[in-house]
Write a protein that binds this DNA or RNA. Sequence first.
DNA 1: GGTGTGTAGGTTTTT
DNA 2: CCTACACACC
Length: 764
Amino acid sequence: MNYLDELNEEQRKAVEQTEGPVMVLAGAGSGKTRVLTYRIAHLINKGVPPFNILSLTFTNKAAREMKDRIGKIVGESTAKSIWMGTFHSVFARILRSEAEKIGYPSNFTIYDTDDSKRLVKQIIKDLNLDDKVYKPNLVRNRISSAKNNLLSPQAYKDNPTLAKEDAQAKKPEIGRIYEIYDKRLFKAGAMDFDDLLFKTNILLRDFPDVLFKYQEKFRYILVDEYQDTNFSQYIIVKALASRFENICVVGDDAQSIYSFRGANIQNILNFKKDYPDTETFKLEQNYRSTQNIVEAANSLIDKNQEQFKKNVWTSNDTGTKIKLTQALSDNEEGLNVAHEIYALHSTHNAAYSNFAILYRTNAQSRAMEDAMRKLNIPYKIYGGLSFYQRKEIKDLMAYFRLVINPQDEDALKRVINYPKRGIGKTTIDRLTLYGNENDIGLWELINSLPAHSVNIPGSARNKIAQFAELIKSFQNVAEKKNAYDTGTIIAKSTGILKEHHNDKSAEGVARYENIQELLNSMKEFVEDDEAENEKDLPSFVQDIPLLTDQDQDSEEDQNKVTLMTIHASKGLEFPNVFIVGMEEELFPSQMSTQSRSDLEEERRLFYVALTRSEERCYLSFARSRYKWGNLIHCEPSRFLQEIDPDFVDASGVTPNQPSKDPFATKGDWGSSMGGGSDRSASTQRRSVTPPRQKMMRVPKTDTSNFKGDDTANLREGMEVEHGRFGRGTVVSIEVAGNRKAVVDFEEHGKKQLLLKFAKLKILN
DNA sequence: GGTGTGTAGGTTTTT
DNA sequence: CCTACACACC
């Protein structure tokens, strides 16, 4: 084994110091993953059994890649038994095996953010609270941060500070909502994301034998991206490590970008206090980027007060300067980027996979996508709605959830009348109310309906009974058949598959294909002989909420430009990086400009973005962009001035607003000459394996540009065109009250339209 | 109970 | 701009 030869001195020390607490402060691009990988391999070579190693990563993908690399050194089967994954997935696994200790079924359902929001909303409604005051999102965030700080509902209600805050915000009932939310989750046999950590803490706190077991098991613990751990995660790690203190945390305070999710940068800043014997290793040599990029990034992050002082340097080439450009609009910005990519692709023969476009918010992807399509540049996009969050997928998945865990009321409500089977809102409301008042779960209630005096007519009772029978029949199927067969039977016999198949609109076709894609992935799951897990439906469904888009890699889609948020780009690298939307209110986000610490986090985010680039980095801003359909004016981001101008080529930017323009005071930017030497693209190093996005982008009928004519002269028999319904003939016009017209559309049949709103174009 | 249509309101960032 | 819901009508 000569892997130690592939490390520099500091890296090697961090690998060889296997015992006791170790903190590795790893600057961007300094070979952090390499250290983690080799450290684990080294442990195993020294004789540590792989099942005694726990390695916590930030994404499942990172875990998979690391496992692969370790497998190449110590052998695949050995690498397989290392416990490696995200906090959420690792502890979900542990919770499932210990579930009954804390009163949960081992097949508990994991609620994603969307499910949890629905539940909060439902509770607010049940309590007759005004959802304009108690905004579900806001309430959920508050509950979430309570959980991440290990505050139970009782602790929340007893906390004077929180009570005061809520009272001042005129939302005194949040504690009560939290309490009910918690009870309902428990009754539904469900945990939200935060619970996976919270309940793990409960488990380790209340069951010393369990704690002892896992302490003994995980004798060596490694935590990647430690700067992004929250309090709840911090306590778990602390508890598990307290026995042997063989804990190695790796991170970079300069890249802490998840405080909105409860991450606490203090965890890494205080590590030495927690473990006084800590050996600290600083990795400061950057192997990823050119000198220009490294120094530009250093000059930026220097503006932050709160940080460990590091001296990140590189022996790489000087490289080209960071290129700054401006555009008149977001669309033009997109086209500028697309043209540049096209040029580099055709003149330097650079593969499309060598490019990434990074932005602050998902909403910015549209202008970029449009531009890519216009120039026929292949691209793939991350984020936004993930596959498993799409409505058609969630609907079918809700059947799966219900079959596995009939206590899951969110799932039940989601499908009891989907597809339509005549169990309407009134009926469901009555059931829910009765259930809440008599403390009976919905599933139990609909199965014992004759015994209850709920005000529900006989016809509806029959339909409910049929529904219950349907679910029970699925439960029978699920017990005997594998996930794929069960899934197919459910999709077919509920009529879901047919419903989407019958919808021939572009959206309908995409939905049908998505359902097929889900079934395909179930088939793959069942036929995968490598994986040792069970092949039944529960095994398939279990951890799906923990998957993200990035977890779906594939060989196809290799040569494409990557579009993603900066957050999603963490840990990745690309030869050419475009950071777009460098504007005030957007980046830094308007939410962050109030406090210094928030602004510093935005700056770290920008630092992360810059340090993704290996060779070339482009910054751009637009003078105007569309926000909610309105054109708004934009000012260049303050961050642009914070980079040392020596490393920036701003020749493409004209300082045209002398008084307000921040460049006016920085004459050196507008006048600096065009970029440095242009290195050949053939020197480009590693490229990142592009992940794939499985779902189709739903082509939407674009009605935004559709202009209606004045309908004052509309008469019967006229040919008209409607933005959504297409062409049709006016059948009749009603003048009384609001003017209405009945139009017989060629493809959509007769519709009654209010002329005040309907945009109709008169064709003859 | 189902359907369509209008209106309000929402955007950081994600496991 | 898009989506989710409330309301009016069938």
